[in-house]
Nucleic acid binder design. Sequence first.
DNA 1: GATTCACTGGGCAGATCGTCCAGTGTGGCG
DNA 2: CGCCACACTGGACGATCTGCCCAGTGAATC
Lengths: 164, 164
Amino acid sequence: MTELDALDARLLLLLSDEPRLGVLECSRRLGVARGTVQARMDRLERRGVLGGFPPEVDLAAIGYGLTAFAVLEIAQGRRVEVAARLAAIDEVCEVHATTGEGDLLVRMVARSNADLQRVIDEVVDVRWVRRTSTSIALSTPVPPRVRPLLERVATDAGTDPIPR
Amino acid sequence: MTELDALDARLLLLLSDEPRLGVLECSRRLGVARGTVQARMDRLERRGVLGGFPPEVDLAAIGYGLTAFAVLEIAQGRRVEVAARLAAIDEVCEVHATTGEGDLLVRMVARSNADLQRVIDEVVDVRWVRRTSTSIALSTPVPPRVRPLLERVATDAGTDPIPR
DNA sequence: GATTCACTGGGCAGATCGTCCAGTGTGGCG
DNA sequence: CGCCACACTGGACGATCTGCCCAGTGAATC
């Protein structure tokens, strides 16, 4: 319920930039007491805002240099089953259920074109998948990020002109 | 040798499960010397496989509960310009350039339907954007993950089973 | 046989961690 | 107006971990 305050946002930003920073360093950089940082982090975790610090693994660096997206159209009412089967494919890294033209949006990776072919085939062959449309990711001009939103909170602080 | 060996994979898996683990704990769990873990981590970082430990921020927990995807068709040769303008929109969290029907795949978040409307308008109004097709994410059956691929390496490549 | 390399196991000083605690605003409320 | 709950400060404690060093072992390479 409680809004994120500016200190929370600054803390998250700081951690985004230098995730290895310890609590002590954070407190120094933010200009607050160590206990405060500790309390804020605990609270953020308890609220579910800060999920943890998962290691960032670069798939490209371990051979999976290709990324592709597939939009799947599936049989009515089979979303759960299809999602489960997609989840069983190692190369499927993300699935969203969506409104609009397709029903599922799938992100997958592969080692080579031939490998991608195999993965796509595997996805397409999933039962109840009616129609698919796949695209290969050529580049990623904006990699996954949350920074801008945090920055807004960190500076704006109180005011909240955005509808809820 | 770009290949990841079984120990590397097990280390990454371990860190995926419990990112806060220190080097010492890792060495204990993996059954190797501390120096070994330290060396492996350094090597993984130097190779770019392990990017770091960015904090995982749950946007839904800070009010941005809606996620939407947009496929943009843009004017020939304007990819860079369009991407730059998209990057300037805070709510745009990810952009990929793709082959296929669309040219750009955009992921964005918003606080409410009205807010989403505003964000979409902002994206659509970007110059050189010809046609767009947006979908709202209703759920995420498979959240972003790399685990299955690591597991494959951890078992395939080595003789060791997965640690306790 | 000699060399290189990764791993082991140990030891060191210094930094950090989790956890306490008293003291200081600051706000809400009877 | 006093009282209380709450958050932050600044300091302290011992336990733990870190970064770094080193000698020794085994395997693979030259």
